[in-house]
Simulated scan of single mutants.
Amino acid sequence: MMRILLFLGTNLAVIVVASITLRLLGVEGYLTEQGMNFNALLIFCFIFGMAGSMVSLFISKWMAKRSTGTVIIESPSNSTEKWLVDTVAELARDAGIKTPEVGIFPAQQSNAFATGWNKDDALVAVSAGLLNRMRPEEVRAVLAHEIGHVANGDMVTLALIQGVLNTFVMFFARVVAHLVDGFLKSRSDGEGGLGFMGYFAVVIVAEIVFGVIASAIVAWFSRFREYRADSAGAHLAGSGAMINALARLKAETEMPDQMPDTLRAMAITKGQTRSLMERLFASHPPLDDRIRALKEAAYRQ
């Protein structure tokens, strides 16, 4: 829900910039005396629906470092850091990608994340708590899971899906407002209508409704890619180690989550989900389901 509120909060600023950008691109406004220009509206929504998503993708590493306090290992200062860098390099080589930057962030909960705008310019970071409490083979499995995210191109795909959904949220919200305005005018012989403030109020309400639906779609894809990353982790580090790592994470789900909201979708765990609504909008499947999926895949082999 916070993502939706932030999206709406920036909407006014987007509208101000929109007309200037569209004129530079030779596109007229989407509201004309003849009615709504749907082609211009779609271009308008695509530009500004994708813009925020792409900007977030390109600055994702910088944001991750700042928001988590991640310290990049430029030159290993101890055996643990050397092992961490060497392990990531080995897993990246096995996955066929360029070695990501490696970092450690100061959180007591066992956690890890991967981010970056493409698979050859990524960041993989683990928490200090994970290094302190997990066995080396379990840490390796967590790292393999994150390398799986990078190799699968999950960051780019998630950004593209978010951008497309933003486009359609903006598009259909304005179509709904236009239809409501036309309906009110038809009932008052063209004298009524929403007016500017009424039109914008309907747009906001419609964006909230469509934004909730879009959030559920993004969450579904996020859950799907967690299963794929678990499978990649099992392939790179072994099914037993991946299952044990997830079981260890499950035991720690009651600890306070110190991951920023903007990075939880990229972390290996967000804890357990219980209610139907939590499951619908959760970025991660329940750990029990992930462990079960790995066991079933291992059994089929």
Rank of each mutant, 00 (worst) to 15 (best):
F221I: 10
A293K: 12
G153L: 07
A177W: 00
F183S: 14
F172S: 04
I59V: 15
T99C: 11
Q109W: 00
V212L: 14
F7S: 15
F7I: 00
L249G: 15
A298K: 09
H284C: 12
E33L: 07
D86I: 07
A232Q: 14
S77L: 06
P260M: 12
G148S: 09
I97V: 14
D154Y: 04
T99A: 09
E254C: 12
A125K: 09
F224I: 13
G29Y: 06
T87W: 05
T21S: 13
S110I: 03
I291F: 08
L276H: 05
I43N: 01
E138N: 14
S127W: 00
T115M: 08
A114N: 07
R228H: 05
L158D: 04
L236F: 05
V55N: 08
M266Y: 08
F48W: 10
I243M: 15
L131S: 15
Q34M: 05
G271Y: 05
V71F: 05
A177T: 00
D189G: 06
A112D: 01
V88R: 10
F200S: 13
R290S: 10
A214P: 05
L263W: 05
N152E: 12
N78F: 09
I204F: 00
S188L: 10
R23L: 12
L41S: 09
A51W: 05
T99I: 06
R93A: 11
P100G: 06
V150M: 06
I73A: 12
S188M: 07
R290I: 06
C45Y: 03
T70D: 09
A51R: 05
Y227H: 14
K82V: 04
T262G: 13
A173L: 00
G129I: 00
T167L: 05
L194C: 01
F105W: 06
S56E: 13
R292G: 10
A245Q: 09
I161N: 11
A95Q: 08
E137I: 04
L6D: 14
D257F: 12
I208M: 01
I208F: 00
V180S: 00
L280Y: 01
Y299W: 11
R140D: 03
E191L: 08
E226W: 02
D154P: 03
M155D: 02
T70Q: 06
V139A: 13
L194E: 00
V85Y: 07
V126L: 15
M266P: 02
V218N: 14
A234K: 05
